[in-house]
Structures are given as C-alpha cells and as structure tokens.
C-alpha cells in the first residue's frame, strides 16, 4: 500500500512540475486586466506539488502491512483491463464493431465459460444493436475498419 501511495504521489508531483513548466511559458503573473493564461495553472500546480509532497511525507511515516493489491485480486482486474485495452487497440485498425464483438466473445468464453450459442448471440447482437442505435437512429458515425469498407457501410 505504501509503495503505491508513494508512487502515485510522486507521479502527481511530476505532473505538477510539467504544468508549472508550461504555465511559465504562458505567463503566470497578474496582468493589467486580471490573471494571465498561466496564472491559475501555475498556482494550482504549485499547490499540487506541495500537497503531493506532504502525502509522500505522510506515507513514509506510516507503515501499512496490507499490500496495495494481492495476486488473487489482481488477476480478475487484469482479466478485464488487458482485453479492454486490446479491444481499444483493435478498434484503431478494425473499427468498433469487430473489436467489440471479439472482446465480448473473448471475455464471455474465457471468464464466464458461457455456451458458444449465447456468446455468438451477444457478440453479434451487441455490435448490431450499436450500429442500429448509433449509426442509423442517432447518426453518430463509429470508427470502422476494412470489414465495413468491404460491406460498403
């Protein structure tokens, strides 16, 4: 727990530093007609660095035996997160419909061990429903890939 706490706080401090750097470029002082572009970001970032620093101090002082996440806990989390990230990656090339069908099928089979017929129904039904609702009704174009191009959609 402590390591995660420390790491998060340090990352936040770094983020604050990054923001301060850009705020200086924008001008962080109080101009003739109020604060300049960088004024608020600068002081917010200063406060962020200071507060995260205090959290670091706090975390160093306190010992917590409990780990941030145990191995048994991490497995189901990664089981959701990794395929989801993979889905977004596939979305970039193959479009949303293919990616979501693959993702739903994969998760249902791998984690849920559902029957193939149920899987097929949902893995095809969900993209189809998305297509009808978003693309046909509300005319929101979704990212598409070669399959859709081939179908002429």
């Amino acid at each position: 727990m402590r390591a995660a706490d420390l790491a998060t706080a340090v990352v936040l401090m770094g983020l604050g530093g990054l923001v301060m750097f850009d705020a200086v470029r924008l001008g962080y002082d109080w101009g003739s007609d109020g604060p300049k572009s960088g004024f608020f970001p600068f002081w917010l970032a200063v406060a962020l660095v200071v507060t995260s620093g205090l959290i670091v101090v706090q975390a160093l002082r306190r010992h917590s035996p409990q780990p941030f996440v145990s191995r048994e806990q991490l497995r189901p989390v990664l089981a959701v997160l990794v395929p989801a990230t993979a889905m977004v990656l596939i979305m970039e090339v193959a479009g949303l419909y293919v990616a979501s069908a693959l993702y739903v099928a994969f998760y249902m089979r791998w984690v849920g061990r559902h029957r193939w017929i149920t899987i097929a129904l949902l893995a095809l039904g969900l993209p189809l429903a998305t297509f009808v609702i978003f693309e046909r009704w509300f005319l929101v174009p979704m990212p598409k890939g070669p399959l859709e191009a081939w179908l002429g959609l």
């Binding site: 017929i117 129904l121 189809l128």
Partner: peptide, 11 residues
C-alpha cells in the same frame, strides 16, 4: 430460432 433470424437479418 432467434439466432437464425439474427443471421438472416445480417444477410
């Protein structure tokens, strides 16, 4: 049954 209809709809 519903499965078939889905496939035909897709077709």
């Amino acid at each position: 049954m519903r499965h078939h209809r889905l496939v035909s709809a897709l077709l």
